[in-house]
């Protein structure tokens, strides 16, 4: 992408770009991003560079509106969760997973319908992601991506709670898929750290044992 004479770098995926070159351009300093989508650009840039470096990805730049920061991260999570949903589609059939469950403790009802109902797991997944997409793109609650009302920020918690169930279902019922996906994307780990850091979910609900693993790792290192 970079031109030889040091002329302007255009960060573009032109038609014909090879998959390995997609979005492969020199990083741009966050302060120099003048777009209204700077936060999304910045987050994606960090993930692209190293999806495992969760601390860096979740480190909010100075003087950044926290609501927007959380909002853009959640958008990114929902987007990447599509990847998990696609994998689940191949294995998680309505006949085998007739209900959205993780542990035996809860059956989750799908909130996408007028009266919440027991959708099969795959439908719960799809409906939840679709619903999250609608909510997060709603002109009513999130008309701007530069500043977000406090009342709308409150909505983020419930979205987090719902989409987290996709992780937990995959973890408890489709472990192979979950592990492959997690190895590639570190998404559940990132998500867990994210909701913990910003207090969007209570720890009791985080039933995929990720923090525990991390703690054990930390302790053993210490």
């Amino acid at each position: 992408m970079k031109m030889a004479d040091g002329s302007v770098i255009l960060r573009r995926n032109r038609p014909g770009t090879k998959a390995k070159d997609f979005c492969r351009w020199p990083d741009e300093v966050f302060e120099e991003m003048d777009s209204t989508l700077a936060v999304q650009q910045y987050i994606q840039q960090l993930i692209k560079r190293d999806p495992a470096n969760i601390d860096l990805i979740l480190k909010m730049p100075d003087a950044q509106d926290e609501g927007v920061w959380k909002y853009e991260h959640l958008r990114q999570f929902c987007m990447e969760l599509n990847g998990l949903a696609v994998r689940l589609q191949n294995e998680c059939h309505p006949e085998t997973c007739t209900q959205m469950t993780a542990t035996e403790q809860w059956i989750f009802l799908c909130a996408a319908h007028k009266t919440p109902k027991e959708c099969p797991a795959i439908d719960y997944t799809r409906h939840t992601l679709d619903g999250a997409a609608c909510l997060l793109n709603s002109n009513k609650y999130f008309p701007s991506r530069v500043s977000i009302k406090e009342s709308s920020v409150a909505k983020l918690g419930s979205v987090c709670r719902r989409v987290y169930r996709i992780f937990s279902h995959a973890y408890y019922h489709h472990r192979v898929i979950f592990d492959v996906f997690e190895n590639e994307t570190h998404l559940c780990r990132r998500f867990t750290h994210f909701v913990t850091k910003y207090n969007l979910m209570s720890k009791d609900n985080l039933i995929v044992p990720i923090l525990e693993e991390d703690n054990i790792l930390d302790e053993s290192e210490a």
């Binding site: 038609p15 589609q89 309505p94 439908d123």
Partner: peptide
């Protein structure tokens, strides 16, 4: 209905043959 049940047959077929990003 946007929140209808999943129908796997919506995906009719997949054409694989390209070895890199399909752009057009």
């Amino acid at each position: 209905d946007p929140y209808d049940l999943f129908e796997p047959e919506v995906l009719n077929c997949t054409l694989s043959g390209h070895t890199d990003a399909v752009w057009g």
